[in-house]
Nucleic acid binder design. Structure first.
Lengths: 230, 230
DNA sequence: CAGTGGTCTAGACCACCAG
DNA sequence: TGGTGGTCTAGACCACTGA
């Protein structure tokens, strides 16, 4: 087989699965048999099948062999872009409008979220992300100052906090959750929506090692949708 | 090196990146050099680095070498479970409550969405997914009957349409979008929420080849969040 | 306990593309 | 155009686990 045949093979086998050549729950041929059939090395078949296993189409077990899954796992991979890129991708000009930049003691909820002792201080930032002078998203962020003291002198009116953080603390871990919230008067005004509107909300918390860095909620105007292939 | 050393190596290199041994934008050593350093074959290094490239930490180019990305790509992989599993994972009993099962002509919006000709008929299904007699989610689904005529006799009061579809047409393609909607009186009543509440909404459209199969919107009660690691 | 997939190796060829 | 990563091969050993 030629170069990239592992790609050809995984595509081919995917087709054979989706067209029903092997039924859900059935056992596939062994790697050696497939290698024989495709005229390639077992390692190549192995690579192709690993791809399909990652996709959730098949399940592989030592001794037991490779099985077509009865309920293929549905999954979506979401790229989480920095907002500037998202805006620029629409051909609009991006500008972060820093509304609040306040150093203070954290409210209990935030302190718990960032695993802070009560005496520690945090930076509270509110930013309205603008696309061509239209509001694009409202961001409410709490930042553990001890984790990134340099943020005090960051030009957050020019570079969004998120982008500044990614550049200064790249490769942080985190989690994310998506939900819906109702716009209060303040946020509704900023996003030019009616109070009580349903806003799509993304919450993220990131940390490095044991140290929590930031927790942020971003609210998008009514109608915003996050899309992905399945 | 021992078995699974590619895993050890990718973990180790990830640490070396995050601890700043190589700065963002910098060039990493060549595969051969790393293979030498770790005392393994180049293929093993290659596998480890591919993992990191998939994660969006590094960028690899022939001739140019392997580079640490300046802005590591943030991404989340969402598993999209069938609702029954989601409910059962919480230790609750699942039951689909089929509220509407009607064969009719599609409204224009749906017909466009499913790429149907106007004379074609569709199945309109509304299901309230229950968890231990509490409403868990409300589903509004339109189904292209020509794509799956057998659905007319499916026991949709026992098996949710989604699960039935996955079993009968596994391995379909699709897309998904997340957003927020306001509960109208009907849905609010079903989900035991106030009218006008912000509901998290998931829309999916799936197809097989050129044929559209189904489009569905699922609304979750206020407070529901979809979580994922980053 | 035997058969399967998981992994590693050493060597090879080649596509790509930056210099 | 030469150096880099992408891929393949043939063979090997081993962990896991189902029969």
């Amino acid at each position: 087989m030629n170069e990239r045949s592992h790609l050809f093979i995984s595509t081919d086998i995917r087709t054979r699965i989706t067209t029903g050549e092997w039924s859900p729950g059935a056992l596939m041929p062994r790697e050696i048999e497939l290698a024989d059939e495709y005229g390639c090395a077992r390692a190549t078949i192995n690579r192709a099948l690993q791809t399909l296993a990652d996709e959730g189409l098949i399940e592989r077990k030592r001794r037991a062999g490779t099985r077509i899954l009865e309920l293929p796992k549905q999954h979506a991979r979401l790229e989480i872009p920095i907002i500037r890129h998202e805006v620029e991708a629409m051909g609009q000009r991006y500008h972060p409008n820093l509304l609040l930049n306040e150093e203070r003691h954290a409210p209990d909820v935030i302190a718990a979220n960032l695993k802070l002792r009560t005496e520690q201080r945090v930076l509270h930032l509110q930013t309205l992300h603008m696309a061509d002078d239209q509001p694009f998203a409202f961001e409410d962020r709490w930042l553990n100052i001890d984790a990134v003291p340099e943020v005090r002198v960051a030009p957050l009116d020019k570079v969004s906090a998120n982008e500044w953080l990614i550049r200064h603390i790249p490769y942080a871990s985190g989690n994310v959750s998506f939900g819906a919230i109702q716009a209060d008067e303040h946020v509704a005004g900023l996003l030019e929506a009616k109070p009580g509107s349903a806003l799509f909300s993304v919450e993220r918390t990131t940390w490095r090692g044991e140290q929590m860095i930031t927790t942020v909620q971003i609210a998008y105007p009514p109608g915003y949708q996050l899309r992905s292939a399945l």
